[in-house]
Design a protein around this nucleic acid. Structure first.
Lengths: 68, 68
DNA sequence: AGTTGGTGTCAAATATATTTAACATGAAGT
DNA sequence: ACTTCATGTTAAATATATTTGACACCAACT
């Protein structure tokens, strides 16, 4: 019953000039390990980090993270 | 330069049958104090709580939280 | 064979979000 | 005057996110 959060970060990285985890981390202002953790769904990020990731790809949060 | 997160929770509560903080907290599954803190911008929520709040109002995250 | 870059993982420390419980205030009703 | 309800605030404890540093693996070079 409870929904779950997935994300398309890995795909989006590749669609954006094969951006590396490190490059994304730098843009967003977090460590690479944080990107890895979010990308692999080890935990869901703060709203702030979610917004920054979405911003990096010029997308809405809903187009980066799915809640369903 | 760094953007900031605001929200329209209070307004949305009133637009939804004058929903109380407690009622929203119950729907979302957090404590009332958490709603107060988010509503008053004491901190920004986790992405999960943000999604649940948006869900409660049947809106996208961007229509509940503004990042700019 | 050795090196480099991108990725995955782990553990310990720190920062931030969230809970619980308690108390204060003001507005509305009795 | 008293009660009730919605709200705001605080402090301490717990949970979760994030950082830092380290190491392993694999693919692509040289």
């Amino acid at each position: 019953m409870s929904k779950q959060i997935d994300n398309h970060i890995r795909r989006l990285r590749f669609e954006h000039q094969e951006m590396t985890q490190q490059a994304l981390a730098d843009q967003v202002g977090v460590s690479r390990q944080t990107i890895v953790a979010i990308e692999k769904n080890k935990y869901s990020p703060s709203l702030e980090v979610a917004f920054k990731i979405a911003d990096t790809f010029a997308l809405s949060i809903e187009k980066v993270f799915e809640y369903k």
